[in-house]
């Protein structure tokens, strides 16, 4: 059926987002791919259940969340600790220092940002957004993704990454400043 073919294509088009989501939770590329694959198969076999009142991405994400929980239940022992967590908040601050003058004031002048309007503009924006997230250090990117994309509270994120709250806030601050810089260069300032 034409409609189901189109839905399959749309589901497949969400793979990259779902992989990013799974990676933020599972922090292992191979495992994330495996779990996304399971979620996509479940979505395809249950596509009749997609009511269309939520966005496709939201529906797929809810399936993926269940698959991630299933996986985490299966792997209850010896869960890998996040090796870089203790140093995550102590990365070099050179790039951050460079944004301010000797009195601590911004060197650059900022403009007001406006939302991308049309669908094609949004698509291009989110491609730039993904490229900017990819440039962040791994921990920073994952913490940011969980906080701002997935909307989780910082307490949950701190526990999951085994980092202190203050460390978590600093990581998020760095992520926002770095993304701001990157998006200014690659999108808003163009």
């Amino acid at each position: 059926m034409r409609d189901s073919t189109r839905l399959y294509e749309q589901i497949d088009a969400e793979r990259a987002y779902l992989l990013r989501f799974a990676l933020a939770k599972l922090r292992d590329q191979d495992i994330a791919e495996e779990v996304v694959q399971e979620a996509l198969l479940a979505a395809l076999s249950g596509s009749a259940n997609f009511a269309g009142d939520a966005s496709l991405r939201t529906w797929l994400t809810s399936i993926l969340k269940h698959k991630i929980i299933d996986y985490q239940r299966r792997v209850t022992t010896e869960r890998e600790r996040f090796a870089s967590a203790p140093s995550a908040g102590e990365e070099a601050d050179d790039w951050l220092d460079a944004l301010f003058d000797e009195t601590g004031h911004w060197r650059a002048e900022f403009a007001v940002w406006t939302l991308p309007d049309a669908a094609h503009e949004q698509r291009a924006f989110f491609a730039a957004f993904e490229r900017c997230m990819d440039k962040l250090p791994t921990t920073t990117a994952q913490v940011f993704f969980q906080r701002e994309v997935m909307g989780e509270d910082t307490e949950t994120i701190c526990k999951e990454f085994d980092i202190s709250s203050s460390n978590c806030w600093v990581i998020l601050h760095r992520a926002r400043v770095a993304l701001r810089e990157c998006l200014e260069k690659n999108w808003f300032g163009k």
Partner: peptide
Amino acid sequence: QLKLLQQLSRQYASGAKAPDDA
């Protein structure tokens, strides 16, 4: 800008594309 960044990050989670446009 940070408020807009947050708004766009949440939009990214819900699928930014209009369904007919995907």
